[in-house]
């Protein structure tokens, strides 16, 4: 039978896992990781890597930073199993939300008519390629 005082004692035990040293170590790791993603800003990165590699790298760095903050600063590493009840459904909903946006928003230009394409805010080099004038009173 669970003792009502158990919750308190487990909670107190949870926080013994923290400690100043660990917090400082996480802080230093976060600073190092931030400077890692900031590296992509400098010219040598552009010379050696493509944009896609840069984006993947930055997202990987961000996810690592997020995990460090969640696990140590938010103590999720030391929490009981309830953490899965709260985090997994929320994470699934987030992914679902984003996926739902893809057909309506991300692929919205796939079925544009010619006229719509001409009137859309297109890149300048694309605009230059369009020969037909677009100012015909919207017929």
């Amino acid at each position: 039978m669970p003792d009502p005082s158990d919750s308190k004692s487990t909670e107190a035990a949870d926080h013994d896992h923290g400690g100043f040293g660990k917090y400082y170590a996480v802080f230093v790791a976060l600073c190092v990781l931030t400077s890692c993603s900031f590296m992509t800003y400098f010219p040598f990165w552009e010379e050696h890597f493509s944009d896609h590699v840069g984006w993947a790298f930055m997202m990987a760095v961000s996810c690592t930073k997020a995990s460090l903050v969640i696990l140590f600063f938010m103590h999720l590493k030391y929490e009981a199993n309830w953490k899965y009840v709260l985090t997994i459904p929320a994470a699934m909903m987030s992914i679902f939300l984003v996926l739902m946006l893809v057909p309506d928003v991300g692929m919205r230009r796939d079925k544009y008519s010619e006229q719509r394409k001409v009137r859309a805010a297109v890149a300048v080099e694309e605009a230059d390629n369009h020969e037909q004038p677009h100012d015909h009173g919207g017929k």
Binding site: S94, L97, V98, L101, G106, A120, V122, A123
Partner: peptide, 28 residues
């Protein structure tokens, strides 16, 4: 607080997700 944060996770991931979808779906 954790329940509130789980709603916040969905709120911001919707915003950030919309940004990513709009940004990579944009012609310019």
């Amino acid at each position: 607080m954790w329940l509130f944060l789980s709603t916040e996770i969905m709120f911001f991931s919707a915003l950030i997700g919309t940004y990513i979808v709009l940004r990579f779906g944009a012609s310019a």
